[in-house]
């Protein structure tokens, strides 16, 4: 019974992780940037949810406003900061996003992020759902469905829209993208914006469960990194499968061994996998 309940919670965790990791994969695919500040966007989303709720807005409004705000911040950051190092070696982008993560975390500490706060679950989503003999809080069901719906929406958008076409072209080959006459600057602005917004959505919807404080995004960032490595850096379908694998491992590990040990087990698993399959589940991770 415990196992079944853990499995369900693993799927919930996997869904959140998926939503969060998609932004990481997207920004990597188009800009070849490994964004260490992605976790800070998650924290920012969670904290923004708290601020908006404290100012009297309902949960739903917070869920809409926070990602838009963080997304715009992402666009601004790309325009003001990332654009300055576009043609520099990979090293610089890693350092830059790392510094940015420190900066955002520092700002959040000053804005009330030292204390752990919990976002209240809206009354409509309270209660428990019976799935067979297992009880799962209604909110977790909502969380998973939202994450899955957003993921599907994003994938459809990537597949069918003009924007999606450009993203995929740039993802396959940045130089090719340039040949097709894609305005790389604007595309990157939008990709960073969407990516930041996705992180913020995960942050807000996660805030009733994972709580909200300045460094709440640290742990999920590590899990998301494990996800993208397992799935293969830059591989979308790899990330989808890996998110659930990591979600299940994390939740089962926590259930049986405790959270910290679960993290260590995950790391050992990832390291072991890299020895034989350095390019992820589908062997399509990038190696440049």
């Amino acid at each position: 019974m415990l196992a079944a309940s853990l499995a369900l919670n693993g799927l919930v965790m996997g869904s959140v992780l998926l939503l969060f990791s998609l932004g990481l994969t997207l920004i990597y695919g188009v800009g070849r940037i490994v964004n260490f500040a992605h976790g800070a966007f998650f924290s920012l989303g969670a904290m923004a949810g708290i601020w908006l709720a404290n100012s009297g807005l309902p949960f739903w409004a917070a869920l809409l406003i926070a990602p838009i705000g963080v997304g715009l911040l992402g666009v601004l950051l790309d325009w003001a900061v990332f654009a300055r190092i576009r043609d520099r070696p990979m090293v610089d982008s890693l350092l830059l996003t790392f510094g940015l993560a420190l900066l955002i975390t520092g700002v959040l500490y000053e804005l009330g992020g030292r204390n752990v706060q919990i976002l209240a679950i809206p009354s409509a989503l309270q209660g428990v759902v019976d799935i067979g003999a297992i009880k799962l809080p209604m909110y977790r069901v909502f969380l998973s469905l939202l994450a899955i719906l957003l993921t599907i929406a994003l994938l459809l958008f990537l597949k069918n829209s003009d924007w999606g076409l450009r993203v995929r072209a740039a993802n396959d080959d940045p130089e090719m993208g340039a040949c097709l006459g894609i305005d790389r600057e604007n595309l990157m602005h939008s990709v960073v914006g969407v990516s930041a917004a996705l992180a913020a959505v995960s942050g807000v919807v996660g805030a009733p469960i994972f709580t909200a404080y300045a460094a709440v995004g640290d742990k999920i960032l590590i899990l998301a990194f494990m996800t993208v490595i397992l799935g293969g850096l830059g591989s979308l379908r790899g990330a989808i499968v890996a998110a659930y694998v990591v979600g299940l491992i994390t939740v089962f590990g926590e259930g049986y061994f405790g959270g910290q040990l679960a993290l260590m087990l995950l790391f050992v698993l990832v390291m072991a996998m890299l020895i034989n399959w350095p390019r992820g589940f589908f062997g399509e991770g990038r190696t440049e």
């Binding site: 900061v81 830059l96 940015l100 993560a101 420190l102 900066l103 955002i104 975390t105 500490y109 000053e110």
Partner: peptide, 17 residues
């Protein structure tokens, strides 16, 4: 100041750029 991390992070970003 308490907000050392802000200066630290900001300076980090600045140096890289």
């Amino acid at each position: 100041t308490n907000s050392w991390l802000i200066y630290f992070g900001g300076f980090f970003v600045l140096i890289v750029i």
